[in-house]
Design a protein around this nucleic acid. Structure first.
Lengths: 170, 170
DNA sequence: AGTATATGTCAGTGTTGTTGACATTCCAAG
DNA sequence: CTTGGAATGTCAACAACACTGACATATACT
């Protein structure tokens, strides 16, 4: 690409932060940062014969106890078959409990057992520790910007799921 | 210091942005945003019998033409066997060229062919379009904060690789 | 000559995504 | 009430892509 600056400034605004070079740096920053983001939980999980998919399931079940499989499916964005394999092992290992719905018996409501909560705690502690350090080093204004950009980067449905979860927070 | 306000406050700083709830929101924002981040290239690639691994290889070969296999290995953080599978198909399909090193004949230097450059362009156009929209919606200050936090979130070695790439930019 | 380095390859395994088939349950139209 | 469709969840088989381990080849260094 000979042209490093396909977006030209218009109407007097300074749009230097939208050059292709800036965008590329943003892309690479996302790539490298996400690796760091998942590194600590991955290390813990690899000792337990679990993977990132288990982490995600445990995280969101903890986040919304009693959620249905279908609900979790929409949040995680995978097929029900894929999620089911993960859930099955978690249930077999006694980390997750699946209760038949009372009003609709087709539904299964998911909960973490004590062991499940312990694992979730361990994983999220590690991930939060890194996030806390990054946030502290960057400062509150940078954190606000970080979240603004991330929200703008989400797909429509994902932004909806995210804000719904966010606003249900304590 | 990027942050002009928090330092002016005395030692009783406002650290509300470091609560567990804020950190959890940051974690979920990363999760959902990364899905959006990879969604567009993934769609393109699924039509081509390629995957995310091919995208990453093509991206960094384009970014640093003539890079060696070992170099790419370190950047991507995968095993040589895993990278080799990807490189082999890309070379077979005429998207990547592998040239024996002149000073050290053990090394293979990697380049994109014209077809490879075309694919890279297609993929990065899609990804940049989303990044551009997110950046534009968020504004320059948010973008600065976004990058500050991401850099703080990387592992040491990855931050090194990232800044080395970043500062070699045109 | 002998060791270290860079790369490539083969075989096996594990996680996680996919599709297809199917069982169960609910609900609504006849 | 029965029947058919929709929703929900489970099981089986397969593909992508990561991993480890072992080994081969060519080259570089000492």
């Amino acid at each position: 690409m000979a042209d490093g600056r396909s977006t030209t400034a218009q109407s007097g605004e300074n749009l230097l932060f939208l050059t292709d070079e800036q965008l590329r740096q943003g892309i690479e920053a996302m790539f490298f940062a996400y690796r760091g983001f998942t590194a600590d939980p991955d290390r813990i999980l690899s000792d337990l014969a679990y993977g990132r998919a288990h982490h995600r399931a445990v995280h969101f079940i903890n986040r919304a106890p009693g959620t249905t499989v279908n609900n979790l499916l929409n949040i995680l964005g995978v097929t029900k078959q894929s999620l089911n394999r993960v859930l099955r092992t978690l249930i077999e290992d006694g980390l997750v409990e699946s209760k038949v719905g009372k009003v609709d018996k087709r539904e299964r409501h998911l909960f973490l057992t004590e062991d499940g909560q312990a694992l979730e705690q361990k994983l999220s502690d590690a991930q939060r520790a890194r996030m806390r350090m990054a946030f502290r080093d960057a400062g509150p204004e940078a954190v606000a910007g970080f979240r603004t950009v991330l929200e703008a980067m989400m797909d429509r449905e994902m932004r909806f799921a995210y804000t719904r979860l966010r606003d249900s927070g304590t």
